[in-house]
Each structure stands twice: as structure tokens, then as C-alpha cells.
């Protein structure tokens, strides 16, 4: 089974990279762009068929390694 994990900065945490991207887009003629937040996208191949089990394991992976919950939120998506 394939899983997708999105890791994003929590609201209120300054995101200098997102800010820089936003500025660049504004400068490049996209004035409609307001706040930009940059995150991470991680794709994993799992040897697991039970969705509930997979989700629980992924949750553990996120808390243990993939996200730093001091500043980051994560969301898990199972595909296929």
C-alpha cells in the first residue's frame, strides 16, 4: 500500500522559506498571492494491507521522526 504524508508548519510559526516564495511570486507578477507556507511531501511504500493498522503505524512514524511536533503538523493519506 502507498501512503502520502504531508508535513506543514503549524500556524503561527514563522516560515521564512514560504515568505521568500511569496515575495518572489509577487515580484514575478502574481500580486494575488498572499501568505505562502512551504511544507514537505513524503511518499512511502508500505508492506501492510490493513488500512487501520497502516494508519496507526504511520501516525507513530510521524510523531517519532517524520514531523517535529514542536513546530509541525502532519496529515496522512492512504492510496491504493
Amino acid at each position: 500500500m502507498k501512503a502520502r504524508v504531508h508535513v506543514t508548519l503549524k500556524n503561527g510559526v514563522l516560515d521564512p522559506q514560504g515568505k521568500a516564495i511569496g515575495h518572489s511570486l509577487n515580484r514575478l507578477g502574481f500580486p494575488e498571492v498572499g501568505d505562502v507556507r512551504q511544507g514537505k511531501f513524503i511518499e512511502l511504500e508500505l508492506a501492510e494491507t490493513d488500512k487501520a493498522k497502516a494508519k496507526a503505524r504511520l501516525d507513530e512514524m510521524c510523531r517519532k521522526l517524520l514531523a517535529n511536533t514542536v513546530i509541525e503538523n502532519y496529515s496522512i493519506e492512504l492510496v491504493g
Binding site: 510559526v13 514563522l14 521564512p16 522559506q17 521568500a20 517535529n68 514542536v70 513546530i71
Partner: peptide
């Protein structure tokens, strides 16, 4: 050591990137 939880907080990207 912050990632390991021995100290609070975290170190983020420098503000000037």
C-alpha cells in the same frame, strides 16, 4: 538534543535563508 527532547524548542532555518 532538541530533537531528542533533552532541550525544549527547535532550530529553524536562518531568517535570511
Amino acid at each position: 538534543v532538541t530533537e531528542a527532547g533533552l532541550l525544549p524548542g527547535t532550530l529553524m532555518r536562518n531568517s535570511h535563508l
